[in-house]
């Protein structure tokens, strides 16, 4: 009976995590994503493989996203997108253009019924969540075994084969230092450990100790060997500098260890929430989208003033 089958099939919401490099895509309530694939697609006009994030303007992004999500559905997930619910995990700093176009693609082209945009990337069982928008260096593949520690003396070179015939020699110091970008201060005096400490400083005094003792690293880059060790070293070092020692009365940092691979922890958080009832309460429906034509966003004051926000959740 098709009616029954349709209502039965509907329960699987789709969870989509469009990462800068890799996209994680699967069904809600499952323990791992169905696929982890590069966030890139052949341009429909020139047939050249491009990253989704290399878009020039809205129409360009629109066609890239249509192609990409079509490919995800019919090559990897093998289910029809029509009248499905989708849960999207996105960065806190996702550009508004991207959100709007994504909503348009999902509602208008693929006829999804509901979209939930999840801002907090997976509150798994940690209190502190670190959203790290890191860009993986192209050589990361070769350097995935590279280490992090501060003595830059040894670490032998690695022969890395490309296309079966060419060989690239990767010197030891590159293997060791390519992840330094996380720890070097940029012109705003910010590095990854700085950002973590600044975030803690901005929090309530009572929460600071809790936060510092519940650091949970997610994202593919944190899987690099030695990353956590180096980060803890850096944090402890920075804590001793006068700037932070005056502001923070923390003496130790504690890290959680993920049971699953860090690169899909964020997706898993989405999967957990997608399996629960929350999706039907807090999602943006087609009707809601048609009436407002904007996607609710934390940085939009319509949605993010305290008095309105509570009542607004209801109209959504």
């Amino acid at each position: 009976m098709p009616l029954y089958e349709a209502s039965y099939a509907e329960k699987h919401a789709v969870v989509l995590d469009l990462g800068i490099r890799y996209t994680k895509f699967g069904f809600a309530g499952e323990d791992s994503p169905r696929c982890i694939i590069p966030t890139e697609i052949a341009d429909p006009e020139t047939r050249q493989v491009r990253s989704i994030y290399s878009y020039k303007d809205e129409t360009d992004l629109y066609s890239l996203l249509v192609e990409f999500i079509h490919m995800l559905h019919f090559k990897h997930l093998l289910v029809s997108p029509k009248d499905r619910r989708v849960l999207i995990l996105e960065s806190l700093l996702c550009p508004t253009v991207f959100r709007d176009v994504l909503a348009k693609v999902l509602f208008r082209h693929f006829e999804y019924t509901k979209i939930e945009l999840l801002l907090n990337l997976g509150q798994y069982f940690a209190q502190d969540l670190i959203i790290r928008t890191c860009f993986v260096t192209p050589l990361e593949r070769a350097n995935k075994f590279a280490d992090k520690s501060e003595d830059i003396t040894a670490a032998p070179a690695v022969q890395y084969r490309v296309d079966g015939s060419k060989t690239i020699t990767i010197p030891g110091h590159i293997r060791e230092t390519c992840h330094e970008v996380f720890f070097e201060r940029d012109s705003d005096q910010l590095s990854l450990p700085n950002m973590i400490l600044d975030a803690i400083v901005k929090c309530n005094v009572d929460m600071r100790k809790q936060l510092a003792e519940n650091i949970f690293l997610i994202g593919g880059s944190s899987m690099t060997p030695g990353f956590k060790y180096r980060l803890s070293q850096e944090l402890n070092h920075l804590l001793k500098t006068p700037y932070y020692s005056n502001r923070l009365k923390i003496n130790k940092f504690k890290f959680h260890t993920s049971r699953v691979k860090e690169n899909y922890v964020g997706w898993l958080g989405g999967s957990l929430i997608g399996a629960s009832d929350l999706l039907s309460v807090r999602s943006l429906t087609r009707e809601g989208y048609l009436n407002n034509t904007t996607v609710p966003d934390w940085c939009n004051l319509i949605y993010n003033t305290k008095s309105i926000s509570d009542s607004f959740k209801w109209t959504l």
Binding site: D147, S149, A155, P156, G226, Y229, S232
Partner: peptide, 28 residues
């Protein structure tokens, strides 16, 4: 609940002395 730990495992010492055998490590 997961328990956070203060001690973080440092890298093993052979990481700095021996080159990894790329034929034994999987690609992405």
């Amino acid at each position: 609940p997961s328990v956070a730990s203060e001690t973080v495992e440092p890298l093993p010492a052979e990481m700095f002395t021996t080159a990894p055998d790329l034929t034994k490590v999987t690609t992405l």
